[in-house]
Design a protein around this nucleic acid. Structure first.
Lengths: 323, 323
DNA sequence: TTGTAAGCGTTATCAA
DNA sequence: TTGATAACGCTTACAA
């Protein structure tokens, strides 16, 4: 039971009285290139001995790896695990395996990860970017390693990307509130910096409301008292628009907005789970489709493998819904 | 800029006018085995050419992979991403990379993943088990691939495992409620089956309360009305003990327990995030330490690599806290 | 301090 | 339908 020596293709060949070439052919499914008898014999022996190939040797000989790196900006977000699931669902069907890395919302870590991933000879990269610096990413493209961005874009359309319709869906949601009589919107978000999702959402709100207040906070060190001071909470025509689910939940839990006598919704935002719906069943939020975004990104990546060329850039938008 | 040919160690050797062995030594940090001059020259050339080694070839030559598989029972749980972070923090410091897989709460998927991971020649496995079937896992041990279980144990102490003190912490928490006058506890959980964490938590409650009611539900299809019917909600001496955070949040959001006139806490459970604390700041919950559990599991795995032997089994308990 | 060369386990070309 | 064998890119005795 406890074989101390690892079996190789040579051992199998010997046992079966064939050459290693034949075993290799069997392993690669070229069954039409051998007699049924040989195939049956190999099948039996391989099963009995529980032989498994050495994937490093396969990679070396075939000159290709089956590892795809996925770098999330922060895996604490439910959004990340969900799109990762989508990615894996596509990759594994094609024999590739997805490896998840976490930038932990830190550009320095992101750089280090990109560097390290690059050095590890991954076959491809799916990146939810933090930095807008394209230089590190170009290193991949220059070496014919396909890259697909997810969630956020960084500019010039030179890299394939799967994003959502941040501007439009925000505009749509904001318009519905404008129609209900709201006069002003207060956006609560982590620092916008130049992160495309946030920039577009703010722009979406500005395209509807003349009066937009922007409050940037740190989710992990949220000072609710300080925040309340900044918000014109008395004004029932002031909508609160929260760009991050975790922040939204904190606000739902800590304000009286839900229990107001006026039954009108005064709080909305982008959500990834159904927790906000548990807390406020009648409210409408902007719901994204991370799983689908992940699957789409993986499909684009797979396509780039087939087409040899890294030159076929695709920009796909997976719509979010206000409901 | 766009090298069409991949550089090899040979190219570097040629450029530097040394042998491939010397380049290899440089790459492996054996700087004391060469002149400073040679080292400097190589450093320069490698930097200029942006050479990277072929990791498949390294693995083949060194006869070891640097990939560790991590199989989570369900990556939707915040618990998983947190312990995965802990694992990665230890692994990457040692040059290993962690690969996350998701059983998606499905034993069939888990089997398939174990099989597939086994076939991919991973160097080690960290598993949050769903099934208690040890046969698939023994395949790894028999091939000298170290395995460490996390969160849940499956029995006979033959496999290293990092768990938490489910029984004790539950007993401690239940006792504090007993002392406050509660007479009965209703446990709400996903089906207990033979999942060790759940079994131990139920046992912990039974060790304190004579009257224990067990309600098994499906988080994704929770019928609140049906659930309410089963609970003796009128009885203010009936404690609700929820074993899963997502369930707990749903209950907090959908019952009036929080807003009762009696200011006594009647609801508690196991939590992984601080969301429940947002919702009920004065309540005490049982808080686990997934990050630490992950890091510990990874450390045990690393230790097993060094000790050659897979025989040194460790069982570590990372305590949870009621606070 | 450096070089030579024999592996590592597979694949794939060419010949039989 | 099969087999021999040269790659694949790197590591590591062993020699020098």
């Amino acid at each position: 039971m406890d074989k101390t020596k690892k079996l190789t293709i040579k051992d199998i060949a010997t046992k079966a009285n064939v050459s290693t070439a034949t075993v290799s052919r069997y392993l690669n499914g070229q069954l039409n290139q051998m007699s049924e008898k040989t195939a049956a014999k190999l099948k039996k022996i391989i099963k009995e001995t529980a032989y498994i190939r050495n994937s490093a040797a396969v990679q070396l000989a075939k000159q290709k790896s089956n590892l795809i790196a996925v770098i999330a900006s922060n895996i604490d977000e439910y959004f990340s695990s969900e799109y990762f699931k989508g990615i894996v669902s596509i990759l594994s069907a094609q024999g590739y395996i997805g490896v998840l890395f976490d930038s932990n919302s830190d550009k320095i870590i992101e750089s280090a990860l990109l560097e390290s991933v690059y050095n590890q000879n991954f076959a491809g990269l799916i990146l939810q970017p933090l930095s807008t610096d394209r230089r590190l990413i170009e290193k991949f493209s220059n070496n014919h390693i396909p890259v697909v961005l997810i969630d956020r874009d960084i500019g010039n359309g030179e890299i394939s990307a799967v994003t959502t319709n941040n501007f439009q869906v925000t505009k749509f949601a904001m318009t519905s509130f404008l129609d209900k009589g709201f006069k002003k919107v207060t956006i609560i978000t982590e620092p916008v910096n130049d992160i495309s999702t946030r920039v577009e959402r703010v722009a979406g709100a500005r395209s509807v409301f003349d009066h937009v207040q922007l409050i940037e906070v740190d989710t992990d060190h949220l000072d609710l008292a300080e925040l309340s001071d900044k918000i014109d909470i008395k004004n029932s025509k002031n909508l609160l628009f929260v760009l991050k689910e975790r922040l939204l939940i904190q606000l739902i839990a800590n304000t009286d907005l839900l229990n107001e006598t006026t039954s009108q919704q005064r709080l909305t935002g982008f959500v990834d789970t159904n927790i906000p719906k548990y807390l406020a069943p009648k409210y409408k939020f902007i719901q994204q489709s991370p799983y689908l975004m992940g699957a789409t990104a993986a499909e684009i990546l797979m396509a780039q493998f087939l087409e040899q060329q890294t030159t076929d850039i695709k920009q796909i938008v997976i719509p979010s819904h206000f409901e």
